[in-house]
Design a protein around this nucleic acid. Sequence first.
DNA 1: AGTCAAACCTGGGCGC
DNA 2: TGCGCCCAGGTTTGAC
Length: 260
Amino acid sequence: MPELPDVENVVNKIKPYVVGKVFKDVEILDPLLLQTSPSKLKKVLIESRVEELERRGKFILFYLAPPRTLILHLRMTGDLLWFPTSKERHLHDRLIFFFEHGEMRFRDQRRLGKVYLVPERGFSSIKALSTMGPEPLSPSFTFSLFDELLRRKKGKIKSILMDQSFVAGIGNIYGDEILFQAGIRPTRRAENLKGGEKKVLFKKIKEVLWEAVSDYEQLSEKSSWFINWRRKGVCPRGCGRLERVKIGGRYSYFCPSCQK
DNA sequence: AGTCAAACCTGGGCGC
DNA sequence: TGCGCCCAGGTTTGAC
């Protein structure tokens, strides 16, 4: 599931329940996800308060008091769920965080998710976070910044969009959506994009992600979205079959007629 | 630096 | 029904 809009949605959903609240217990059902020791996680979290909750790229950061940072990454199949009252466990529940008024669960079918605990209010010890590119929805992510960063890159544009150190939060699906809406093939090389194409691409990065974040619930029903046609292998505009290419180990889909 | 394959995991779907 | 293979909205690592 989780790329920027999905993670943003998870954070917004969980936020009202946990900000200002104190961890009372942690149940570790699957230590595989932990990048810290179970005993340390329990010891540190219990009686810690959640000061703030924030998304950075596809990471979720819990800023704690006393100062520590709990960091979650949902990877492919992770999700965070809130239960006001205890319910029976789901097969894929990996971690349960107990508060006085309810519990937050980290559910993850494929067990690829990650849980980090770092000192202070920082994350310099996590490489992916310390080298993370700009937040695409931030006002400081301007066309001139995008253009400047892009000039330093070579290679297929799809790989670059998915590169978290280039720009944060875009994955395989939204990468395809952005390129479809921009009318650019995923195989195009960054160094060959024309000025106008870069402008459109920048605009679509903002537009697609912004719309996905603000209209998250409706998204799966929107037939205008490439996302909902991708798997069927047919262009939403009726051009016919989509083509599939492997880029950076993932399949990219594109319409050979709409995308140049 | 870019690209590719493989690894980390589980499970659904498909062909035989 | 069973088996093997492909695929999945992510990231890291190691080789060329």
